[in-house]
Amino acid sequence: MDPYELLGVDRDADDAAIKKAYRKLARQYHPDVNPDPVAQEKFKEVSHAYEILSDPQKRAAFDRGGDPFAGGFGAGQGFSFTDIMDAFFGGAGQGGAANGRGPRPRVRRGQDALIRLDIELAEAAFGVTHELKVDTAVVCDTCHGAGAAAGTQPKICETCRGAGEVAHVQRSFLGEIRTLRPCAACRGFGTIIADPCRDCGGDGRVRSRRTLTVKIPAGVDTGTRVQLAEQGEVGPGGGPAGDLYVEINVARHETFTRHGNDLHCTVTIPMTAAALGTTMSLPTLEADLPDADPEDSTFELEIKPGTQSGTEQVLRERGVPGLRGGRGSLVVTIHVETPTRLDSAQEELLRQLAVARDEEQPEGHLRASGKGVFGRFRDAFNGR
């Protein structure tokens, strides 16, 4: 029967149209999908037609009116199992070529690399430039990535003849099913390096320690990754390098705690300063920078008379700069310290103050926050 009619394509159909028609019919009549004996016979006919039209020589022989299998192949033989898989999954098989066949490329992109960098809080907040020593694969200087010794070149694999794949034929009710597997002799490359470079062993790359300069932007935090394009591992065969990622770890600060872009700190003042009020000059985070401007190294904190312990003061634009602009606040919590060791003179002065303020026998004040323990006892005694 006419293979063009079996596949339902025109006589001038290109390879893509023929393969598309075959895939559609194969999915319809394949025995795993359609167990009907008639469908199985139809699948054999469709496969036979595709075998003719997918082979330029067989197709030309049929178009001339000759026998496309005059070379000794029987109907349904030499059929590729890869074509059946393409019919069901529509994808390419393994290999380097676009149609899933062909040798693997020796030159491939390298892997990305990751290193961790410890920096101080001020460096994370305002940015810093660091020098890093990294161990990665680099192009072999001896063979320049070729992998072969000087004066030699890779040779075509005699087993697969440069295809990178070898065919394995298996008989089935469909005929001879041919599957393609990577060539074991050349590992799928299609070529063999008979005399590899002594320095890289034929890989085209060696490991080396090198120094890089990385600029850490202002506003980074623990877990932030800075990408250095093409500074990672060089690929096999001297292929393009992957990227290097620098993961930031910010050290703990003895004064400031970071929450997002805000900085928090606690200032302890004596009871007298809290009662009378005062002004204090305190260091900022910028003071940790080696080239800090003196004007930015301190800030004035005004303690108002009667300040209570736990009071917070928010200083705008004194926190950490954001990666996308803006700057957080500095939140200062006031802790009032009660003296614990008094000499007799100090104790007498406080007693005089207590008398003057009528606080010799102070009454405590309970703040209502729902029904506490005393409220529940009172309700119990009142029968509520």
Rank of each mutant, 00 (worst) to 15 (best):
E5T: 11
R11T: 14
A17N: 00
K20G: 01
Q28V: 12
Y29P: 00
V33H: 14
N34S: 15
P37V: 05
A39H: 12
E41D: 09
K44N: 11
S54K: 09
G65D: 03
F69E: 02
G78W: 02
F79Y: 07
M85G: 04
G90C: 08
A92G: 08
A97R: 15
A98F: 15
G100P: 00
G100T: 07
P103D: 11
P103N: 13
R108D: 02
Q111C: 09
D112W: 05
D118S: 06
H130L: 10
D135G: 12
C140T: 09
D141Y: 13
H144N: 10
A149I: 07
G151F: 10
P154Y: 09
K155W: 06
K155G: 09
F173H: 10
F189W: 08
I192Y: 02
R207H: 10
S208H: 14
R209E: 13
T211P: 00
K215W: 07
G223V: 01
V226G: 03
L228N: 11
E230N: 14
E230Y: 08
D243R: 07
E254C: 00
R258K: 11
N261H: 12
I269C: 07
A275T: 11
A275L: 11
L282Q: 03
T284A: 07
D296Y: 05
S297A: 15
F299M: 06
E300T: 13
Q308A: 15
G310A: 04
E312K: 06
Q313W: 03
L315T: 03
G322M: 05
G322V: 03
R324F: 14
R324G: 04
G326P: 05
V332C: 05
E337I: 02
R341E: 15
E347D: 14
Q352I: 12
L366P: 00
S369L: 04
S369F: 06
G372V: 09
V373N: 10
G375P: 01
D379I: 00
